[in-house]
Design a protein around this nucleic acid. Sequence first.
DNA 1: AAAGTCGGCAAACGGTTGTTTACTGAATGA
DNA 2: TCATTCAGTAAACAACCGTTTGCCGACTTT
Lengths: 207, 207
Amino acid sequence: MSHTPGVRQAQKQQSRRALLDAALGLLEHQNLSGVGVREVTREAGLSPAGFYRHFRDLSELAVVLVEESLASLHGMIRRVLAESGDSDQLIDRSVELIADHVREHPAYVRFLARERHGGVRAVREAIAAEFERFADEVAAGLGAQPASEGWSRADVRMLAELYVEHMVATAAAFLEAGPAGETRIARTARTQLRLITTGRRHWLDEG
Amino acid sequence: MSHTPGVRQAQKQQSRRALLDAALGLLEHQNLSGVGVREVTREAGLSPAGFYRHFRDLSELAVVLVEESLASLHGMIRRVLAESGDSDQLIDRSVELIADHVREHPAYVRFLARERHGGVRAVREAIAAEFERFADEVAAGLGAQPASEGWSRADVRMLAELYVEHMVATAAAFLEAGPAGETRIARTARTQLRLITTGRRHWLDEG
DNA sequence: AAAGTCGGCAAACGGTTGTTTACTGAATGA
DNA sequence: TCATTCAGTAAACAACCGTTTGCCGACTTT
């Protein structure tokens, strides 16, 4: 191969991907503060110095992983909000979708749960920012539903935050429990969502 | 001083405490995987080798910190459950108590939030076990309330888990926000609790 | 007062780490 | 074709790390 522009860039992207994947793999069982540049490059099949051709820092790499993690999460939430049906069906599908997502992308979910309150400020802030955009999206979706008629903007927002928070907790619980406890976690999550939905239905009755 | 039994033990306990405090201090800004034995002993004023007279491991020390963290949390929850009043007053006091607790023991709370999904299995499991005992206690308290008449054991339990989960999330939010955003976090938390309480009140209507 | 216990220390062990340096060789553009 | 760019490398740097060893000296028991 020669004189075909783009070969170089493609190879570089491949190395970059290898670094990201290696890091993500290591982060499934360790903290970000616990993995090192050398460890990542070893796993990725690069020399230690090669790392610095792509990232200044491990935390810079981690921020990229945050964005990737939530890109797939955003796709998920869009699917949930777009669906229609009675609230029980919606709850069932939401919980099932979370379970699917955790099953398909366990490393990403684990990474987010771990570093959400982790020791690296930049990563923590990146995750917090993305979760807020997330809540914005949920709030918009909720606001468009007929069930939110008469609700203040602030109340819709706080409901959205409650849902997001519950979703994150449920995902973390799925991870911790493994395939064995999956149905138990799902049942609890569904019941809790039904309780919240009940509260939502009677919110204006007794404000 | 000599021939007074217990001097040795007291001195040993003092060193042990110094190690625990040093570690807790370091863990406020770093992950458990990020702090080292040498770092802790340096901060505590001991030699590296001295560490092993007290703990086999840093994770062993961390498990002790977990127990300490939740001892004070248990005291808190007992106070909340013992109080009486209408539900809004109870909610206000609960949220205020969480805020106080975070203000008084930020290092412990941060440590728990950080290591709950952290990279060290033993610590994760210790935290999970304590949180479950916590949920047991809340469930017992809720079950004793008149509002839980007609509720199944499982439903009381899932409500308790929802409360605990919300409490943890609120505490973490207080930490992240600092004194500035405190009132905003508190307001959101109170509203969310009122929504859950509304759901609780109408739970049996439409089961 | 003598013997024993044991918390703490200095030192050394082999190993790891992050980062920089000067370099090589293939992809590139003229 | 020839000069340039640049992703990746090997090697060296100093600074750490966790853990073990042998020892000391204050406490404790007899």
